[in-house]
Design a protein around this nucleic acid. Sequence first.
DNA 1: TCGCGCATGTACAACGTTGTAAAGGTGAAG
DNA 2: CTTCACCTTTACAACGTTGTACATGCGCGA
Lengths: 377, 377
Amino acid sequence: MRATGPGARGVVSLRDVADRAGVSIKTVSNVVHGYVHVSSATRTRVQAVLDEMNYRPNLAARTLRSARTGLIALAVPELDLPYFAELARHVVREAERHGWTVLIDQTDGQLERERQVMNGIRAHLIDGVIFSPLAAGPAELTDREDHTPLVLLGERVYDGPFDHVAIDNIAAARIAVDHLLSLGRRRVGAIGEQNRPSSGTARLRSQGYAQALTGAGLPVDPARIVPTDSYHRADGAAAMAQLLDRDPDVDAVFCFNDLLALGAMRLLHERGRAVPGDVAVVGFDDIEEGRYSTPTLTTVRPDKERIARLAVDLLAARLDGSDTQGPRELTAPFELAVRESTTGVSAAPPTPSPAVRTGASPRRPGPAGRGSPTSRT
Amino acid sequence: MRATGPGARGVVSLRDVADRAGVSIKTVSNVVHGYVHVSSATRTRVQAVLDEMNYRPNLAARTLRSARTGLIALAVPELDLPYFAELARHVVREAERHGWTVLIDQTDGQLERERQVMNGIRAHLIDGVIFSPLAAGPAELTDREDHTPLVLLGERVYDGPFDHVAIDNIAAARIAVDHLLSLGRRRVGAIGEQNRPSSGTARLRSQGYAQALTGAGLPVDPARIVPTDSYHRADGAAAMAQLLDRDPDVDAVFCFNDLLALGAMRLLHERGRAVPGDVAVVGFDDIEEGRYSTPTLTTVRPDKERIARLAVDLLAARLDGSDTQGPRELTAPFELAVRESTTGVSAAPPTPSPAVRTGASPRRPGPAGRGSPTSRT
DNA sequence: TCGCGCATGTACAACGTTGTAAAGGTGAAG
DNA sequence: CTTCACCTTTACAACGTTGTACATGCGCGA
């Protein structure tokens, strides 16, 4: 038996509305959904009751029937790494276009948490996952037991059965280092190598760095490649200190992300080295902070909005079944944003504009272009 | 009629497991929940099947019965404002202790979106909301039609019927400005005043600024108070330019958040003004960036972790019914972190440590202290 | 005038889970 | 040997929604 009227917590169900309006539950449901075959008299009356009682559909019940929640998860290492915060913003915005809400998971780069993300902690509660792995490598990914559609960001995992969106990290790193070489720098260090075997992104950036040096006929000196535990400012500062100790005459440094670069610049400042006078610095990610630092930071600018859009659209295609092909490998474009930390020229506009940019066109501009992403199965 | 075996998408239900194990659905459910009165033989057998079939409970169904989802929403203006990213991190972490997942809503400070957050877009899908309003004022809040427990952050809305967690903004602002005055500065500007009537936080910080000046026997010159549209670096730079135009001899500036301060410092640099030599700068929020900027930034450091904990615990108390009292008004502590942008003394440790801090004890240390928050009904 | 078709509205079942109540089975106590 | 108690397991209903199938009633054409 059910008491008349809405339940204890003031929650109104279709049934409550139906009772009050003197129609069946299904009719109310039909009105809510704008089903055509409802007389306008009935519609008006029911709608009035709906408004009056402030009816809100119960998404849990709806989900139970439809097996669709309208939630997708975005799993990133840390929200307060600006790169991920900015990325999250774009993902949230793109998801909105599909009527989705984004649930954000912070893995802290811990393998166990990443494993949970992949194997569906919140099974049935989320329709899909966009995942930026840090600790998880090919092995863990392949062992995945969950069936929720998954899109990987940032790191390519061999030929795993996963959709994947990234930029061409090797090319980006090479272009960044080429830029340093074009300025006449010859003792170029690198900060951000990762010792953990799983980190594909770091390895790719290392490769690009080495390719650029080799391409210019310069040796790749392992002493100038400083690994870090993580990608925070403090790591960049510590690594820069180490680099200076190893080679006091280093004249440029390529950092694998902007935070490392900002930490490195801070340390250079404390050690009395001028940037770029003594040491030129390039970062990676183009976080907003680098446009306001002193000096402003030259950096690789991945198209975050595009990355977010590609990832969300790919998920959408998997969800509505419009894409049943094998795993996709999509590439987003990037640019090199040249600023004071390499050129020393302060553009110094009346108000600091978001930096001078030298567009370096993406390595594969065609296929990665708008609307027709590359697919490699 | 139901086909035997798991459904089309490989989703395994209790029923599938029960069929395979030759027991009733409820027995499987009992095993899943570790119910005591299950023979160990049955338990072992069922558990084996559970593992084998990789059963995952359907949270939607569970929610439908229990009316609890284990999801809470955190609604903030922008995720890539570092303050909110850092806060989000803490909230996620605290929520974890309660077994909750955090769903993040980005309102962009738009009234319409804030209204949706309050009135339960995702009704029944979230158990509670932690909300940092920007556009919504007392009027909108009071009109709220949803019954989901809500905790407000950062801004006090009159005597509205809402739980609320904040720091003492007036005191914090006053201490920041007192610090500038104690350094001998006498022409102190303020950046970040908000023209929209709803912004309580900005008004409180303005008040603290005025109180400090008045307390030192100085006049409050409206020309030195520059409003901004929002709280980004660009706003800070633009406002600083305006402030210099109005009073070229300004010797200090109190910014209502760190991003404004960083933008202001950038502009001062471009105009050739030394910080703190010519102009001392104080920010608000203590985002990590300010510990690595050049110069490092003196700022008010609200205890974000505490804020997050108080908010989450308060929500928990409302949810489990252990707190049915009237609305709570909780206060978190803060400190003034004194760094180079006011003192000019570079501590210059081997690696930049997270700043020299001068603890300014919270104005109401007792009641705001650990575990026994103030309550004002 | 009768019957057909369409517009409108309804009953029912099912999604997967869990609380309740009760049934079946076993052993011990009388 | 009977009975009772308890341990174990099960059937059932309900959470709120929506797709399917069907009932009702009206107007229109034959």
